[in-house]
Design a protein around this nucleic acid. Sequence first.
DNA 1: TGACATAAGATGTATATACACCTAAAAAGA
DNA 2: TCTTTTTAGGTGTATATACATCTTATGTCA
Lengths: 152, 152
Amino acid sequence: MAPQTPTSQNQPALGECACMNLRKTARLIAQFYDQRLQPGGLRNTQFTLLVVLDHLSPVSIKNLADHMGMDRTTLTRNLRLLERDNYITAQPGKDARVRMISATGKARVAIKETQPYWQKAQGEFLQKFGEERWTEMREDLTEISRIVTSQD
Amino acid sequence: MAPQTPTSQNQPALGECACMNLRKTARLIAQFYDQRLQPGGLRNTQFTLLVVLDHLSPVSIKNLADHMGMDRTTLTRNLRLLERDNYITAQPGKDARVRMISATGKARVAIKETQPYWQKAQGEFLQKFGEERWTEMREDLTEISRIVTSQD
DNA sequence: TGACATAAGATGTATATACACCTAAAAAGA
DNA sequence: TCTTTTTAGGTGTATATACATCTTATGTCA
């Protein structure tokens, strides 16, 4: 009889784990984009936040967090850095609990300067992966986001 | 003439951004799994690391980092926590620069205890998303990982 | 062999992420 | 109205992530 290996038997088929696979690819693509965005001076997280903010301004933290699939408290910490660097400003909302966040002119300048590098990274990715394939995959990602956030 | 909105024109089509879409879905699915793994006492990152380690033990940090799509220094910090809690041990390799990492018995116990919760989360996801669809999507994710890590 | 390049790992620093918990304000009900 | 619940946001704490840089060990090659 063959000796047992010291590792566990009947292990979870982690190779199929949705969490592991998505997180791994997300790490790698974040590194890919960050490398290419570097000359523009913004990391992918902040670039994304500023572009979204520029579209939604003024917007509450709650709404922005939902839009980004981020915990509210994560967004609070991320926004603090953007506020420190004068990329955003906050005004009180009609509802006194709410801070309405807006992108500043400095943010729009930074977006404009970083945008070509993003375009290049995105183009490089689309050229290699296929635009149509990516369009389909985006639908899959949206479906997954819907599934894991649905209350049932 | 319609007044210009204060936001920038000709903005990047961020809705198609591969980085943003993958990171957003990765955040959401990590929350989904972490909620369901909670009774088992391990978060998704550590559960994943331990299962992989249990398969690859003993393994160098470099090899494990490549396998996980993680920066070596990220893995060093993650492993430190696992070592603190006696889930892993390290032995010097033949190459004196290398630390060979192994999962402990405590790790295998923790894996066994968490595994049912992972199975439930994975089953819930597969049931809603579709097993076949997920199999195809895993190929897409693998292809993306390959694309963004290829040297050209 | 000795000089140089490369590789493995750790550390300093900074950002990213989210849970538990707290405060204040608004909404809902009695 | 007044009590209760819900909601928006912030804080304390802990983990997750990675770049720049350092140290040490290995590999390369003249």
